[in-house]
C-alpha cells in the first residue's frame, strides 16, 4: 500500500517538473530576448558605429571619447542632473507629507486619498498638456493666481531660467501619488505601541516623527528614493511635450538626446554609448541613496 502511494507521489512530482517548465517557458523566452540579450547588446553596441543600415564596425572607445567632447551631451547631462536635484527631494517631501496627512484618522480620509492620488491616473502626456495651459505666461491660472498676490509670474516654459522648474512642478504633481501610497503603506507597519510609549514619555509631534516615524520608514524611504532617482534620470515625456528641449536647450535631457541621434538619425552606436553612461550614473546614484538612508540590503533580504 505504502509502496503504491510513494510511486504515485513520485510521478506527480515528475509531472510537476515538466508542467513547471512548460508554464514558465514563454516568460523565460521573452526574458532572454527582451532582457538578457538587450543587456549584452547594450554593452556591445556602444563600442561600434552601428546604424541599422549597413554593417557594424568595432570602433573601441571612439563613441565615448566623442561623448566627452560633445557639448550637447554635456548640456543634456547637466539639465538632467538639475532636474534630478530638484525633483527627487521635492517628490520625496511632498509624498511623505501627504502620506502623513492621510495617516491621521479623520472622517472622509478615503475620499481625500482618492483626490490626492488622481493625478497619477492621467498619463504624463495628458498631465503635461494640462500644465502647458496652466503655465501660460499671460492667461495661465498659475500666473493669474500669482498676480492676485502682486507677484509678476515668470514666462515659465518660455524662459530658459524657469522652464526646468516648471517641468519639475508638473512632474511632482503628476507622480507623487504613487510614492505617497508607498509611504502610507509603510506607516501601517510602524507599531502603535512605539508611538504610545513615546507619547507617555512626553515626546511632541516633531520628536515622535524623528525618533519613531522616520526610522520606521527607512525601508520605504530607500525604495521611494530609488524609484525617484531612476525615474528622474530618465525623464523624457514631459520635456518632449512641454518644451521640446527648449528654450535655448534648457530642457534637453539625456534620454531626449539619446532619442534624437539614436532614432532620428539612427546613430545607434553613439546613442548606446550615451545609454550606457546614463545607466552607470543611475547605478552610482542608487548605491549612494542606499548609503544615505543607511539601509542594509542584505539585512533586509
Amino acid at each position: 500500500m505504502s509502496h503504491v502511494t510513494t510511486r504515485s507521489r513520485g510521478t506527480a512530482r515528475h509531472f510537476q517538473q515538466r508542467y513547471g517548465y512548460a508554464f514558465i517557458a514563454i516568460p523565460l523566452f521573452l526574458f532572454l530576448v527582451f532582457t538578457a540579450v538587450p543587456v549584452v547588446l547594450a554593452l556591445g553596441t556602444g563600442f561600434t558605429n552601428y546604424s541599422v543600415i549597413g554593417r557594424a564596425k568595432w570602433i573601441g572607445l571612439a563613441n565615448f571619447r566623442r561623448l566627452l567632447a560633445d557639448p550637447f551631451f554635456g548640456v543634456a547631462l547637466r539639465n538632467t542632473l538639475v532636474y534630478t536635484a530638484m525633483y527627487v527631494p521635492a517628490g520625496l517631501l511632498v509624498a511623505l507629507g501627504c502620506a502623513l496627512v492621510l495617516n491621521l484618522k479623520h472622517r472622509g480620509v478615503t475620499v481625500y486619498r482618492v483626490f490626492f492620488y488622481i493625478p497619477v491616473v492621467a498619463s504624463t502626456v495628458a498631465s503635461a498638456t494640462m500644465w502647458y495651459w496652466l503655465l501660460n505666461p499671460t492667461h495661465g491660472v498659475i500666473n493669474v493666481v500669482l498676480g492676485w498676490f502682486g507677484v509678476n509670474g515668470p514666462a515659465w516654459l518660455y524662459s530658459s531660467r524657469w522652464a526646468m522648474t516648471a517641468i519639475v512642478m508638473m512632474s511632482v504633481w503628476a507622480t507623487f501619488g504613487t510614492n505617497m501610497m508607498l509611504f502610507l503603506a509603510g506607516l501601517q507597519y510602524i507599531p502603535r505601541d512605539l508611538h504610545e510609549a513615546a507619547m507617555i514619555d512626553g515626546a511632541g509631534v516633531i520628536r515622535r516623527f524623528w525618533h519613531v516615524t522616520w526610522p520606521g520608514l527607512r525601508r520605504t524611504t530607500f525604495f521611494v528614493l530609488l524609484l525617484l532617482i531612476i525615474g528622474a534620470m530618465q525623464v523624457f515625456d514631459q520635456a518632449y511635450v512641454l518644451t521640446q528641449g527648449g528654450p535655448g536647450n534648457s530642457t534637453i535631457t539625456v534620454v531626449y538626446y539619446i532619442y534624437t541621434p539614436g532614432f532620428g538619425d539612427l546613430r545607434m552606436g553613439y546613442a548606446s554609448a550615451m545609454s550606457f553612461v546614463l545607466a552607470v550614473i543611475i547605478l552610482v546614484f542608487s548605491v549612494l541613496s542606499n548609503r544615505l538612508t543607511g539601509h542594509d540590503l542584505e539585512a533586509a533580504s
Binding site: 538587450p38 547588446l41 547594450a42 553596441t45 530618465q234 534620454v255 545609454s275 543611475i282
Partner: peptide, 8 residues
C-alpha cells in the same frame, strides 16, 4: 532601467 533596453 528602460534606457538600457531601449536601443537593443
Amino acid at each position: 532601467p528602460g534606457v538600457i533596453t531601449m536601443i537593443p
